[in-house]
């Protein structure tokens, strides 16, 4: 009990200091980054959604490694859950997977809608909220619904992982294409004065590729969990 009280006291110190530093922040509050991006973001990148502008252009380097983290986690989860001995088709006597009929029907109804919404979010990532990562996650959720409809669905994990890796390499190549076309690394491969519509080609292309990659990655992670020990 005393331990807990001391802990609360320690956290209280942190809170107090944070409280004071908030006063400082309100005084110092520096909007340089925000003003800069608001003023030049659209002209620089051709993306009306400034978040996408940052993710796919100003800080593309971060996004590449963000996709890389997913890639590593997928490989890691698969590696940890993989078994040396073959027990793929182990039969479990007491396993009962029975989804209610209502649920199955509902899932069948929702599945195409979610898939379409995911693609919408990906493709319009540069003009409305959304983008590759968000849309990819929505598509992955849609695919997961398939498991409700058919619990014994067989997925070829190895193939998905291979496609994911190839997609990652493709993303890296598309991102570095700008080095050839305009002498700058990891940015839009169209020249900086190109019209926003032209620049949008690059944004949509990269969003679609990232979306696919994220969807496949999350799908693989989920499948690895579902098949774990089976």
């Amino acid at each position: 009990m005393i331990k807990q009280l001391i802990l609360i006291g320690l956290l209280g110190i942190l809170f107090g200091v944070f409280f004071v530093s908030m006063q400082d922040i309100q005084e110092l509050y520096n909007t340089f980054g925000k003003d800069y991006i608001a003023a030049t973001g659209f002209a620089d990148t051709g993306s009306r959604n400034l978040v996408t502008a940052i993710l796919l252009d100003y800080r593309l380097f971060d996004s590449l490694f963000e996709a890389g983290i997913l890639l590593i986690a997928v490989s890691g989860v698969i590696w940890i859950s993989k078994h040396e001995s073959q027990e793929k088709n182990a039969q479990f006597m007491l396993d009962k997977f029975k989804t209610p009929d209502l649920f199955v029907t509902f899932s069948r109804l929702v599945y195409p809608l979610m898939l379409a919404f995911g693609f919408y979010v990906i493709i319009n990532g540069h003009v409305s909220p959304g983008g590759g990562f968000q849309g990819g996650a929505i598509i992955a959720t849609a695919i997961l619904i398939l498991y409700y409809i058919d619990a014994d669905k067989d997925t070829n994990i190895a193939l998905i992982v291979t496609i994911e890796k190839i997609l990652y390499i493709a993303i890296l190549l598309v991102a570095s294409l700008s080095l050839v076309s305009r002498g700058e690394l990891f940015t839009n491969f169209f020249v900086i004065d190109a019209s926003p519509d032209t620049k949008a080609i690059y944004l949509v292309l990269l969003n679609v590729m990232i979306g696919m990659k994220v969807a496949l990655g999350l799908w693989t992670i989920f499948t690895a969990f579902l098949k774990e020990g089976r």
Partner: peptide, 16 residues
């Protein structure tokens, strides 16, 4: 004015 877009972009990374 707009809300700061940079934190939002960083936070999408953090969520993933």
């Amino acid at each position: 004015g707009i809300a700061d877009p940079l934190p939002q972009a960083l936070m999408i990374t953090t969520i993933v």
